[in-house]
């Protein structure tokens, strides 16, 4: 089972890259030139992200090295045990709906400290991949058309986030 899942996961990227390039060739596009153009965008994204990364790493590094994270973790462990989520992941779960770059930095911090291929690392990765910056998304789309009454949409979106987090935990536990 774990082998099949691994195979599908590993085949996904080469297959998608090949299909897209073949499609470009079929339509007689200058695929390499287009690739270079798009690549520049990636550079811009990382450069734009860099100051955020420094800022968040600073704050998270301070929280961790002062020992305050251990304190918080020990307080919330009873709750997380109930949901079977490793308590080290809680800072991520709390930040994830609020800020994309901040939660990304926290995820990196968790994986650096508890190992990227450990259960905690896998759950962290899966949560990052399967959830979104909920508050930001809702704010952007409602403010774009000047809407104030959202009919409880935040609750539905947060319920989806929690479901995604619990599902990530369960799936990774089954796999490892």
């Amino acid at each position: 089972m774990a082998n099949v899942i691994n195979y599908i996961s590993n085949a996904a990227i080469p297959v998608i890259i090949t299909v897209i390039i073949l499609y470009g060739l079929k339509e007689k596009k200058k695929v390499f030139d287009i690739f270079l153009d798009g690549g520049k965008e990636g550079l811009e994204i990382v450069i734009k992200m860099f100051p955020t990364l420094i800022g968040i790493f600073l704050a998270v590094g301070a929280l961790r090295s002062s020992g305050i994270i251990d304190l918080i973790v020990s307080v919330i462990t009873p709750i997380t045990n109930l949901l079977e989520i490793p308590s080290q992941i809680m800072p991520l779960a709390l930040l994830r709906p609020i800020s994309g770059s901040a939660s990304m930095a926290v995820a990196v911090d968790i994986m650096q400290n508890y190992g990227v291929d450990t259960l905690t690392g896998l759950i962290t990765s899966t949560i990052m991949g399967s959830t979104e910056t909920t508050f930001y998304t809702i704010a952007i789309y409602t403010s774009a058309v000047g809407i104030k009454k959202t009919r409880g949409i935040l609750i539905a979106a947060l319920a989806a986030d929690v479901a995604g987090m619990v599902a990530s935990t369960v799936i990774c536990r089954i796999l490892s």
């Binding site: 590993n10 899966t126 991949g129 989806a160 990530s168």
Partner: peptide, 21 residues
């Protein structure tokens, strides 16, 4: 890349819960 399939499954579950809600 081993997380791709778990991410798909978790995303679909999250989406179903969101849509139902």
């Amino acid at each position: 890349t081993g997380i791709i399939l778990p991410v798909w499954i978790a995303t679909i579950i999250a989406a179903i819960v969101g849509i139902a809600f």
